[in-house]
Write a protein that binds this DNA or RNA. Sequence first.
DNA 1: AGTGCGATTGACT
DNA 2: GTCAATCGCACTA
Length: 205
Amino acid sequence: MGSAGGQLVTTRLTRDELPVDTAALARFLIGRIVVRETPEGVISGRIVETEAYVPGDAASHAFRGVTPRTRPMFLERGHAYVYLNYGTSWMLNVSGEAAGIGAGVLIRALEPLEGIVLMQRHRGTDKPRDLARGPGRLCKALQIGPWADGLDLCAEGLLWLGRDGADSGEVGVSTRIGITRDADRPLRFYVRGSPFVSGTRALNV
DNA sequence: AGTGCGATTGACT
DNA sequence: GTCAATCGCACTA
């Protein structure tokens, strides 16, 4: 678990340790860390909620094949797919399969770790619980936008995935939020009991 | 070229 | 609890 002094060191995830399966990756990413390096300082948060959009999934943007928007979903696992939803909210996804297969993991919520003051500034709220609870909110808190689309999240840079030694806690599984097609599949993963998870009470049992 | 809609959010009753 | 905002994209023609 923690190193000497109780300070947990964050190390970057290598592509080799990412499961080559989008549902497994969504489960794997629970408890991992998103690190954002800004000119003003580092912002990071622990992933507490994900959703998998798997091959052959009618709810996935990649379902109808490669398009200009979904091209990053077809990159080798570990690349960012960032898109604008409802004209208002940016969404961060991690591609989940081998190159040429379209799939991704939506990062839905973070528990703030570092750079909380910066997150508060970006979000316009002080409430820790609301800083990164929701896929659009976490992108706003970390200033993730179209500049990050297609980025390799296993490489050194302004946005990457990491891990420390912390225990992720008990992981629950439910149906996905806000979709209409293939809505009954158990492809949402979350930390049970975490106040930083989005969704209704019933989904988070 | 035109149109309908969504992997959400924030404001409001 | 309800509901409108907002816009790039994918689909139809």
